[in-house]
Design a protein around this nucleic acid. Sequence first.
DNA 1: CGCGCAAGTAATGTATACAGAAGGTACTCA
DNA 2: TGAGTACCTTCTGTATACATTACTTGCGCG
Lengths: 251, 251
Amino acid sequence: MPEREADRSVSQTVRAQLALRDLILSGGLRPGERISELQAVETTGVSRTPVRMALVRLEEEGLLEAIPSGGFMVKAFSERDILDSIELRGTLEGLAARFAAERGVSARDLEPLKECLNEIDGLVRQDPISVEAFSSYVALNARFHPLLTELSRSPPLIRQIDRASALPFASPSGFVMAQSALPEAHQILLIAQDHHRVVIDAIENREGARAEAIMREHARLAARNLRLALRNRTHLDLLPALALIKSAAAD
Amino acid sequence: MPEREADRSVSQTVRAQLALRDLILSGGLRPGERISELQAVETTGVSRTPVRMALVRLEEEGLLEAIPSGGFMVKAFSERDILDSIELRGTLEGLAARFAAERGVSARDLEPLKECLNEIDGLVRQDPISVEAFSSYVALNARFHPLLTELSRSPPLIRQIDRASALPFASPSGFVMAQSALPEAHQILLIAQDHHRVVIDAIENREGARAEAIMREHARLAARNLRLALRNRTHLDLLPALALIKSAAAD
DNA sequence: CGCGCAAGTAATGTATACAGAAGGTACTCA
DNA sequence: TGAGTACCTTCTGTATACATTACTTGCGCG
């Protein structure tokens, strides 16, 4: 079947949203820079209507900021903003873990999570850990966290966590790859995996406060990774999203 | 100056958004009901383009749900959803209070909050409390909570709290008016005001954990109000948003 | 030489026309 | 009588044209 010009199956709006998001995260647009709709029409190849829709959605996503007089600009983030976003995500995931513990979960619901954990165990046993193993870890981690969130069985909370994780630097896997270049890499991964095991154990034993606390601390690993990566200033290219940081980056 | 057909100063999109939100919250549309764009065009009087924009924003706001095949429907909420949304808001406000306590706030920043508290004190001294006093309380409460949130000086958190409070039944003032019809009304108001004083005290003394805990508990007053109002089933007309609840309401 | 105003230009907000798809209904066949 | 199919209606998604508003540039006046 002919499939020129990208997928014909997805809507123009989604296509524009993806294209613009990539453009922003790859640093194609400077923070604070106004996004011209016509310019966006040229780069995305779709009409103004879906472009406008995509811009609105990217604003809600947090990547854009509305200009009072009209239009949108690329949002700029401080390092503090990012750290706060991580703490925020950890707090929400903590709430989800507490809900799961307090309300109880069936062994059947826990099954896919334990599978994840076992697969991750296979990875972290390596020393040193290969880059491919890191990629696998990112994938497994990106599977584990949503599963954990869903254990809360709370649609409003799940929704809010999704929104809080939409910002790439706030997502559970946002800074794992940055970590791969660090000497502490293996150690941090072992700790993260221990957090995973502890939160499942806490949920199984209906220990709400413990489940909540460990998820908060778990998120703070991401904050540590960010700080280490910024200080070392090595392999920052692994983190395209950092193009949005105000002071740093911007070579 | 002529001002027919509503304000000419606000955009059509905002006008449509307000009109549709009122329509939904007043129960004009049943939960689960599909919102036809053309029908929305007729009721709002604006064209399809701003109507579509308004629908997208109302979806992000949480009042609408996207239908996979296209279009939007009015979202339905369970009582549990609402209770979770309140707990969620309390958790976020707790985080804001903790940030404020940990990072410290100046006496100048606290001034407007203390003014609020003093004004509320003047209200809760009455016994019994008039309906007008309740309205004044709602207004003051709606001023206090955003001020408290801003003490965190964390734009990402402020943004997330705004979004969590957008749902009318999750907002800090969502169930205060319902409470006015209850025999426990005065007592609950006194407790709420004590929470306000305690959180400010905790922030002043840099007691982060205490500030966080009290805001969580403070939000649970709203949950109590909701449960009492639903059990008593009196003055439910004060809560138009309850038209969105799945099982209840729906006469 | 600097500030302010005006005019031109460009960009956004809005309206509408068109195409494609989804859903409903009626009819036919088993 | 029930199920399946085909057609028709109605809706959404997209494109584009138009109007209004904001911004910029250049000129004139102080």
